[in-house]
Amino acid sequence: MVSFIGRRLCQALFVLLIISVVSFVIQDNLGDPVRQMVGQSVSLQERAALQQELGLNDPLLQQYGRFLMGALQGDLGMSYYYKQPTLDVIVSRLPATLELSFCALLLVIILATPLGVIAAIHPKSLLSRAVLFISTLGLSIPIFIVAVFLMYFFAIEWRVLPSFGRGETTSFLGLWQTGLFNKDGLRHLLLPSFSLAFVLTPIFIRLIRAEMQDVLQSDFIRYAWSKGISAPRIYFLHALKNTMLPVITVGGIQAGTLVAYTILTESIFQWPGMGLLFMEAVTRVDVPLISAYLMVVGVIFVVTNTLVDVVYSMVNPRVRIPGYSA
């Protein structure tokens, strides 16, 4: 287990190194941060002084080295706009995004698993045909259209759900501002998480259906029937557990992309999370914040992939992480 974590850590560092290079290479093309920070009335001398103070006149490599040294000590720089350490700014927005992604993923699992299983067991039934048709539609409609439609009907036409923001939040252990424990927060969560789930659900339905159909053809399923055990047990234990092996692998990667989709969702619903923060940072040319965001997302990716590997090894007894016993 230790060596597994160690290997993952090295991998993470390598990924972060590449991300940091990329974010620094693009910064020259993002416009002038000084112009964004100061007003019209500031003189050229003052601008030059500020530029010097921020270190923007130093060679790129030197700036990068400075950033890297800071990053190693947990300092990802100061946000030009917030005048706060970027990491603090991002961490304050992290709960909103994680809650949104978590709820979306939960919705995906709750919706896709039974629908995919039904579509695999009864491929010719009306229900599975309908499910497949709708999932094809879902695959081809971009998230911003889905989100706008949902908002139009639920928030504007029928006025049953709020259209933007996170609503009321409560503090959880003083560390985490959560919207999960009160009604208003949950109501605000519904539309954004549903639109986010809408992207991934069709992919998962199709994936589960295809894998399950494959598994249902295998000898051990026929053998299970020959033992006289019940149909639900065969479908939902014998077949589904085997179906989940490839689904977990693909699902893990997709869960990572969910974080990317939060940028769109959060912008549409004005959800005060990391995605919205990133969009604002881009328009404000807040380069340290952009870099820090990219680094944090990189960490999230590596962490989810590691979690996926651990979950996979728990479901599949043939794969055991060395030194780790379930």
Binding site: Y223, S226, P317
Partner: peptide
Amino acid sequence: SPKQWQGIRGKKIAMIFQDPMVTLNPVLT
């Protein structure tokens, strides 16, 4: 009916399959 079959299979008529390598479910003990 399928329900009646369930009572026959395994209990009255048991089956042994050809290839033991693929007959047992790999993810269950």
